[in-house]
Amino acid sequence: MRRRTFLGGCATGVAAGLAGCGGLLEERSTDGSGNPSVLEDRPDAVYHPTHIEGMEMIGTQTVGDRKVGLFYSYAHRFWTVTGTRTNLAEIQDGQDVHLMASTWDPETQTVIPVLDQPTFTITQDGSEVDEKRAWPMLSQNMGFHFGENMALSGDGTYTVEVDVPAVGATTVDDFQGQFGESITAEFSFEYAQSERDDIRFEQFPDQKGSSAAVSPMEMGMLPLSYAPRMGQLPGSPVEVGSVGDATMVATVDGSTLLVSPRTPYNHFSIPGFSLSATIESVGFDGQLDDAIGPVLGAHYRAELPEAPSSGDELTVTVDGPCSLSRHEGYETAFLERGSVSRTL
Rank of each mutant, 00 (worst) to 15 (best):
Y330K: 05
L296R: 06
G220R: 11
A227V: 04
D285Y: 06
A75M: 04
L115F: 07
S260K: 03
S211W: 12
L7I: 08
E336T: 10
L24V: 14
P237I: 02
Q109T: 14
N266E: 14
A134L: 04
P308A: 12
C21S: 11
I292Q: 00
E53P: 00
T12Y: 10
D31K: 05
T5W: 03
I279L: 11
L138R: 01
H98N: 12
G180Q: 15
L335Q: 07
Y158K: 02
N149W: 01
D245V: 03
V38L: 15
D65H: 07
Q92S: 15
A277K: 01
T119I: 10
H327E: 13
F201L: 06
E306L: 09
D96E: 13
P216G: 09
T84H: 11
T119G: 07
R2L: 12
E328T: 11
P106F: 09
F189T: 08
V162N: 00
D197N: 12
F334L: 15
T256V: 15
F175G: 02
M217W: 01
G320D: 09
T317S: 15
R301I: 05
R66F: 03
T110Y: 02
L344V: 07
A15N: 12
D65N: 11
R342S: 12
T278R: 13
D285W: 02
G8E: 06
D285M: 09
M221Q: 15
L152Y: 01
F146Y: 13
L99W: 00
P321W: 00
F334H: 08
S188F: 04
C10G: 14
W135A: 07
L224Y: 02
D198S: 10
T247G: 11
E128H: 08
Q140C: 08
A307D: 06
R229N: 13
E313I: 05
E131P: 01
P36F: 06
D93G: 12
R229E: 14
L152E: 00
F144N: 00
L7E: 04
A277T: 04
G293A: 15
G22K: 10
Q117W: 04
T84A: 15
P106T: 14
S211R: 15
D125L: 11
Y74I: 03
S323H: 05
H299M: 07
A333T: 07
L258M: 13
V172T: 15
V46Y: 02
V172W: 05
G83L: 09
S211G: 12
D198A: 14
Q178Y: 09
G244H: 03
V259E: 01
G272T: 04
S215T: 11
G320H: 08
E218Y: 06
M150L: 10
L275T: 01
D253I: 02
A277V: 05
G32H: 08
S323Y: 02
I112F: 03
S33V: 14
K208N: 11
T247M: 13
P228M: 05
T80S: 15
G147M: 03
A45C: 12
T157F: 07
A151N: 10
A185Y: 00
A213C: 11
L18N: 12
F201H: 03
A15G: 12
N149K: 06
T103G: 09
G286L: 07
